[in-house]
Simulated scan of single mutants.
Amino acid sequence: MENINRKKRKVSALWSVEYHKNTPIHKAGLLLAPGNWERFDPFLLMAEDHMKQGAFDYHPHRGIETVSYMIDGELKHMDNKGGRGVLWKGDVQWMTAGKGILHHEEAPENGFAHLLQLWVNLPAESKMVEPRYQDILESKMVKQEAEGVTVKVISGSSGELTAETRNYVPVTMVEISLKPGSQFSQDLPPDYNGFIFVLEGSGEFGSDLTAGKEKQVLWLSEEPDEESEINIHALNEPLKVLVIAGKRLRESVAAKGPFVMNTEEEIKQAYKDFREGKFGAWSEE
């Protein structure tokens, strides 16, 4: 294997997630707040949801992909293009809304769903692709265990491990679990913009050894022209993180509600198409 001299990334910003109880059956916190289009490119927003049955009704999307990562519980998914599935702890759903889809995500009766949902922007050339749905089950993920570190590749690659997930935007999404005292370096291609979210424990991150702990987001320094890597080091307790990074689109963003396009005219057209039934009909069957 070719030995690549990678630039060591730092942590450029850190923030803690604040949680709010929206309703008696839904509590949420924003990891990535919407509106920061250029800073977070190609990502639009990311939320952590704790919900019970009835938190959401079916709703539309256009121009994006939604990525749902199950922290715990059970999530049932259905859409009006034939997508159906049930996700459990560690599973991921990668849904491409494309030109338009109606979908519903629901916790089971008397149960709960605890998940992260990331919105990935689609490039202009792919905004109106046909919708598609990918279940990425934990039991079938590409993974590796060595020297106190377990790596699960949800999308993209980690070293020699590569996921089968299909992407319109190149995205690396890797779950990394470390035993106390262990460390790992995640490689990232040039011009990948991204972050680390600490799911459990605490540790030190990057070449500047930034301290991070559970429920914190660590935004990575940019390396537009070089292969790079970010180091993750567990100290005195187990550490579990998600590393998420994607290739910048560098395109204009127009967003309103569940639709994300490149111009305001395209947003108006999305609402018009939805009102006229061009996203298709909803059926509970």
Rank of each mutant, 00 (worst) to 15 (best):
G159R: 07
W119E: 06
E251V: 06
E48A: 10
G29E: 04
M46T: 14
E74N: 10
W37K: 02
L14Y: 05
V86W: 05
L239A: 11
W37P: 01
D72M: 07
P189D: 11
P190S: 06
S202E: 14
K179Q: 15
I232F: 05
S202K: 06
E237T: 11
E284R: 11
H26E: 11
P42N: 08
A234H: 07
V260P: 04
K143Q: 10
R84S: 12
I4Y: 08
H20R: 13
D273N: 07
G206T: 12
E264K: 01
I244G: 01
A33T: 09
L116R: 02
V169D: 00
S182W: 02
T23W: 04
Q134V: 03
S139Y: 13
F195L: 12
K278G: 06
N236F: 09
K81H: 14
I244V: 15
F279W: 00
E147V: 03
L239N: 02
N193M: 07
E285D: 06
L30P: 10
E74I: 11
H59I: 07
V149A: 03
L188P: 01
L178F: 04
E223Q: 10
D41Y: 10
P180M: 05
G156C: 09
G98Q: 02
V243H: 02
N167I: 15
G29Y: 05
G111R: 01
A33N: 09
K10C: 10
N36V: 15
D191N: 08
V120D: 06
M173L: 14
K268M: 07
G82Q: 03
F40R: 04
I136D: 08
G82K: 09
L75I: 15
E74F: 06
G280H: 00
S177H: 13
T96I: 08
K10V: 15
V151Y: 13
F205A: 02
A113T: 00
K256Y: 13
D41T: 09
E229Y: 03
N236H: 13
K7Q: 11
E48K: 05
D91L: 12
P189Y: 05
L45N: 00
K76M: 15
G201K: 00
M141I: 04
K52T: 14
Q269K: 08
E38I: 09
K27G: 08
E2H: 02
T263P: 00
H61F: 04
L242H: 03
E227H: 06
N22M: 15
M70H: 11
V253Y: 05
N121L: 12
G100L: 06
V198F: 04
L178D: 03
Y58C: 08
I136F: 05
K7T: 13
L30Y: 12
I196C: 11
L30D: 15
